[in-house]
Nucleic acid binder design. Structure first.
Lengths: 233, 233
DNA sequence: CAGTGGTCTAGACCACACG
DNA sequence: GTGTGGTCTAGACCACTGA
C-alpha cells in the first residue's frame, strides 16, 4: 500500500510547481484513500531526499531546486569558505556558546582531564533560508576564548582559528556515518525525529598533533554533495 | 513523551544482556504506558544506531556488540579485502546478476548509449550473519561477462577486476550521502522503510579515465566506520 | 498452531503560524 | 480564530517464524 502511495505522491510532486503547497495532510490522505499515518510515512522518503519541506502551522511545500554545496573531502574547508568559493550564500542561524565540563568522551578525544572546562559552540547553517547543517564544536578552552568568537562570527570555528594563525593547524580526522535524527538534531534542522542525516565526527589537530577541536556535524541530505577520490590499491 | 520513552528504552536496553530478547511490543508498550506506535518510533533510533535488531515473527533483540569494519576512504578496497585484513569474516547473501538496458542516468555515467546493454550485479554482504551492506554495481558489458562472475564470486566486483588485471584501474570517485531506505533497500538490509543508511554512489575509472563501473552502496550504520583525513588549506 | 513484528486505520489533541 | 503539521492512541489485520 505504502509503496503505491509513494508512487502516487511522486506524481503529485512532479505535477506541483516548486514552491507550491500540497493539499493539507487530512485532505490529501482522504483523496489518496489512506490514513494520515500512512501518507506521512510515504512523505518521509521525499522529505529526506530534499523534495518536500514541511512547516508546522503553514503547510507542506515542494522544494525549489537549490544549488547544492559540493566539495571534496580531502581538504578541510569551512562551509562558509566553500560556499563563498562556489558563489553561494549561506547564513548562520541559532548560535550558542556554552561553557561545558568535559565528560568521559570529550576528555578522551581532546586529551584533557575529565571534568575540565571546555567551550561548546553550536550553530545552524542556513542555505536558502532553510536549516541545512547543524554543527557542534567542543574546544579546549586554552585554544579559543568566547570573546574571540563574539563579533563577526559567521559560523566557522575553523575560519576563526585559521585567521588567527595560532595554533597552526594540520589536519582533521573525520568519521562519516548516517544517523537517524534524535530530538535535538531534529529541532535544530527542522525535520522529524528519525529522519536521516549525514553525520561527521571530527577531530582537528595542530601541526604538533594535538587535538584541539572535537566537532559533530549533521547535514541535511540534498543540500550538500561530498565526494572523495579513492585510488586503487 | 517520546523523548521520555527514549530514555526509558535506553535503560531497558542497558539492563538487557546482549543477544537477549525484549518484551513483545504490545506488552512493552503497555508496561511503558504508551501506544505501540509511540514505542516503535522510539525504538527506531536504537535500531539505526545498531543497538536493536528486530526480526519479524521472532522478536526484538539487543544486539551483541560486533566488531566494526573500519577503513579510510583514501584507498579503494573491497569490503572483503578489508575484512580479511582486519581478520573479520563476512559472507555474501543474496546475489543477482541481471542483464539491463542503460537508462538515461546509467548511460550518462558510464558513457554509453542509452538503451545499450549493461550487467547489473546486486548482492548483500553479511557481517555476523546479519545484512550489513547492500551493493549494486552496473558495469559496461565489454568489461565483465556474467560467466566471469559466476563461480567463486565472493561479493566484490572490484576484486574480480583487480585479479584479472585488465583493464587496469586507477581510481573511483565516490559521493557520500545519508539516505532514508526505500522498500528495496529496506528489504535487502532487513530494516524498516525510512531507516537511515549510509550511501555511496561511485564511479570506477580505468587508468585511461574511462568509467566502467557505476556502483551504489548502502551501509547499515553501526557495522562500518569510514573515516577520511582532511588536510588544512 | 500461537506469538511475533509490520502495517494500517480513524480519531484525537497539541503547538504553531498567520491573518 | 482558523488551519496547518506534530504527536499520540487503541485497535485491527497481515506475514512471518518456530515449535
Amino acid at each position: 500500500m505504502s509503496k503505491e502511495i509513494h508512487q502516487r505522491l511522486k506524481e503529485i510532486i512532479a505535477a506541483t510547481a516548486p514552491g507550491e503547497r500540497l493539499l493539507a495532510e487530512p485532505k490529501l490522505a482522504e483523496q489518496l484513500g489512506v490514513s494520515r499515518a500512512t501518507l506521512r510515512e510515504a512523505m518521509r522518503i521525499f522529505e529526506t531526499r530534499g523534495f518536500l519541506r514541511r512547516r508546522q502551522g503553514v503547510g507542506t511545500f515542494v522544494v525549489r531546486p537549490t544549488q547544492v554545496i559540493e566539495s571534496g573531502l580531502e581538504v578541510l574547508e569551512s562551509i562558509e569558505t566553500l560556499s563563498d568559493r562556489i558563489g553561494l550564500s549561506v547564513a548562520m542561524g541559532d548560535c550558542q556558546l556554552v561553557d561545558c565540563v568535559a565528560d568521559e568522551v570529550i576528555a578522551e578525544k581532546l586529551g584533557v582531564e575529565q571534568g575540565s572546562k571546555t567551550l561548546r559552540i553550536s550553530r545552524v547553517i542556513l542555505a536558502d533560508e532553510r536549516p541545512a547543517a547543524f554543527l557542534v564544536d567542543t574546544l579546549r578552552p586554552d585554544v579559543l576564548a568566547p570573546e574571540e568568537v563574539g563579533t563577526n562570527f559567521k559560523g566557522s570555528v575553523l575560519d576563526v582559528l585559521l585567521k588567527r594563525g595560532d595554533p597552526p593547524l594540520k589536519h582533521s580526522r573525520t568519521e562519516i556515518n548516517a544517523f537517524a535524527a534524535d530530538s535535538d538534531v531534529a529541532r535544530a534542522l527542522d525535520i522529524q525525529r528519525g529522519d536521516s542525516v549525514l553525520h561527521f565526527e571530527s577531530l582537528l589537530y595542530t601541526i604538533e598533533d594535538e587535538p584541539i577541536d572535537y566537532s559533530l556535524s549533521y547535514f541535511l541530505p540534498g543540500y550538500f554533495k561530498f565526494h572523495v577520490v579513492r585510488r586503487v590499491g
